[in-house]
């Protein structure tokens, strides 16, 4: 565990908890894409299948349980909570799941390290995580006016990815056989998706104006 990895995990954790807390306290999910949240729930479910078979560390197990629990709680709030679900803007959040899920599944079946159920599911989760933010980015682009919390949520998620890249560079130099190109390529693609958002986020922060994305 290095400082980049820990900072990345903490940023990821804070992003998810900020979102859950926001939904819980203001009883609104305005600006949040249910599609992205469902994809994340699927990402964690397929990635953490090893929760039942392998033990890595207490830290690892606890974090996995938090990510699983929080992602399913968010989906539950948006779909089932009687007040929260009213604020969900279904008409704007139109991205199709299968449009993302199917290509990732096909890719995972074709490109993986080992052809076992667990390994293919793990690889699928990496590909899926790389693009799961797309419905959220499309929603931000459409609504244009982004409230602070949604902006911070997306910013924290992007920061988490950037920190993971630093972690891989660090591990590559400190651990002799640390070469995981599937993880790296998926991670770099994922981080690049945030580049555009980051640009406007920093602009708005620098000029001290409300974050708006161009149409």
């Amino acid at each position: 565990m290095n400082i980049f990895r820990l900072a990345g995990d903490m940023t990821h954790l804070v992003s998810v908890l900020v979102l859950l807390l926001k939904i819980h306290t203001i009883k609104s999910c305005a600006g949040i894409s249910l599609k992205t949240q469902e994809l994340y729930a699927l990402v964690f479910t397929t990635r953490y299948l090893d929760l039942f078979t392998d033990y890595i560390s207490l830290y690892n197990t606890v974090m996995k349980l938090i990510f699983l629990g929080s992602s399913f709680s968010i989906v539950w709030y948006i779909r089932r909570h009687k007040i929260v679900r009213r604020s969900y803007d279904k008409d704007q959040d139109t991205f199709r799941h299968y449009f993302i899920v199917l290509p990732c599944l096909v890719l995972a079946l074709l490109i993986h390290h080992k052809f076992t159920f667990k390994e293919v599911m793990w690889t699928f989760s990496l590909y899926l995580e790389a693009v799961a933010i797309l419905p959220q980015l499309v929603l931000l682009q459409r609504t244009r006016n982004i409230d602070n919390l949604t902006g911070q949520y997306v910013f924290l998620l992007g920061a988490y990815r950037a920190l993971y890249i630093l972690n891989w560079i660090y591990r590559h130099y400190t651990e002799p056989h640390y070469v995981h190109w599937i993880t790296w390529i998926a991670g770099i693609v994922q981080t690049l998706l945030y580049a555009d958002f980051f640009y406007y986020y920093f602009q708005s922060w620098k000029n001290n104006v409300k974050l708006q994305l161009p149409a």
Binding site: D9, D54, I56, S57, N60, K64, F67, H113, K114
Partner: peptide, 10 residues
């Protein structure tokens, strides 16, 4: 090379 990634990342 033997593949031995232990999936220690989240």
């Amino acid at each position: 090379r033997h593949y031995d990634y232990d999936h220690d990342e989240l």
